[in-house]
């Protein structure tokens, strides 16, 4: 990965990547491919946000789909019933989902490991049951149809291409925010909580605070993903936000690599693409999928792009005043 170390080449690579992403709808006009790309984008939002909780703060959460669902329903209901602009609805989705993250986190983040996983699992089920049973608002299992498309300054976003560009913007925004959080004192504190809570406390870090931050931020971004999804599909029902979705998102995070943002992207791409590619053998698709996961965990338990590839020296400041050692340090780090 030495090419990626050079900042100039890195910029060029990023530039080429961006151009390719922007040109994609012109190169490939098949709307099915665009749909797959949009799905990947939504899952990148969900996987990177869950990675903050599970990969960086080390808290196993099995209820991420609940925040996704809350975002979707809040966004959809605001747009349908109150004619709220999509972007305002999206902010509201983020805020409400984040609040639910806080509500769930406050009493439960004292629990560890399996216990927390069970509580989050329960939370996910409760949220789904509310969607099903609160029929006067959510129309229950019938779902909410006819969710409007977004519009910016009178310009209506409709059609797959427009939605494709919208999700690209959202993904870039999310990646930017996540990157900044992870490579900061806050992100580092989260990782100390994951590694050793007692040691973290011994240097003045209050573990619950950082777990809560991770939970709330992750929930907010899942809410954004939900609102986007609602507007894109134009119809939501409780069946989308089930336990299975939570597990899929978690699988993306683990397969890609816990505690690594590029890992989450890779995980989201692979776990969205593989089931699509295996569609021709629909009967055995999940079987092969499962086998793949098992092999992966045996041969690469760290995931495709695990935390060992993370940027060392999180502050990205060359120590030693940048005079010496920075080059050699760079090279030996990534071998």
């Amino acid at each position: 990965m030495k090419i990626l170390r050079n900042p100039k080449q890195k910029k060029v690579l990023y530039g080429i990547g961006l151009i390719l992403l922007a040109a994609f709808p012109f190169l490939i006009t098949n709307s099915y491919y665009l749909h797959v790309c949009i799905s990947i984008g939504v899952y990148i939002l969900l996987a990177t946000s869950l990675n903050l909780v599970t990969g960086f703060a080390g808290q196993l959460s099995l209820g991420h789909a609940a925040f996704y669902g809350i975002g979707a329903y809040v966004g959809a209901l605001l747009m349908l019933n109150f004619d709220v602009n999509f972007f305002l609805a999206m902010i509201a989705s983020a805020v409400v989902s984040g609040l639910f993250g806080l509500l769930l986190g406050l009493p439960t983040l004292r629990l560890r490991g399996d216990y927390l996983a069970i509580v989050t699992l329960g939370f996910g089920e409760i949220v789904r049951l509310v969607f099903v049973n609160w029929a006067e608002v959510t129309r229950g299992p019938l779902g909410l149809p006819g969710i409007p498309s977004p519009s910016i300054f009178g310009f209506q976003i409709s059609g797959r291409t427009a939605f494709y560009y919208l999700i690209i913007v959202l993904v870039l925004l999310t990646l930017f925010v996540m990157n900044r959080i992870v490579n900061s004192g806050v992100g580092m504190a989260m990782q100390t909580v994951k590694i050793d809570e007692i040691a973290a406390e011994s240097i003045g870090i209050y573990p619950i605070k950082y777990k809560l931050i991770a939970f709330v931020v992750a929930a907010a971004f899942a809410g954004i993903a939900g609102c986007y999804y609602a507007s894109y599909i134009a119809y939501i029902s409780p069946t989308t936000f089930v336990y299975n979705t939570s597990v899929t998102i978690l699988a993306m995070v683990v397969l890609g690599g816990l505690g690594s943002i590029p890992g989450s992207i890779i995980g989201a791409v692979i776990l969205t693409l593989v089931p699509e590619l295996l569609r021709f053998m629909s009967d055995y698709r999940m079987l092969i999928f499962g086998a793949l996961m098992v092999f992966m965990m045996i041969f690469r338990p760290e995931g495709f792009w695990g935390a060992s590839k993370r940027v060392k020296n999180i502050y990205k400041i060359k120590a030693g005043g940048g005079k010496n050692g920075s080059d050699s340090g760079d090279n030996q780090r990534h071998n």
Partner: peptide, 30 residues
């Protein structure tokens, strides 16, 4: 009880109160 997967420098950085007291706002928009 070091943070074994972190570098020597990071182990000290994170113990500095100015580092782990960074607010999330600061971290994103600083």
């Amino acid at each position: 009880r070091l943070f074994h997967e972190m570098t020597v420098l990071e182990n000290l950085l994170i113990a500095n109160p100015d580092c782990h007291r960074e607010s999330i706002w600061e971290a994103v928009f600083g």
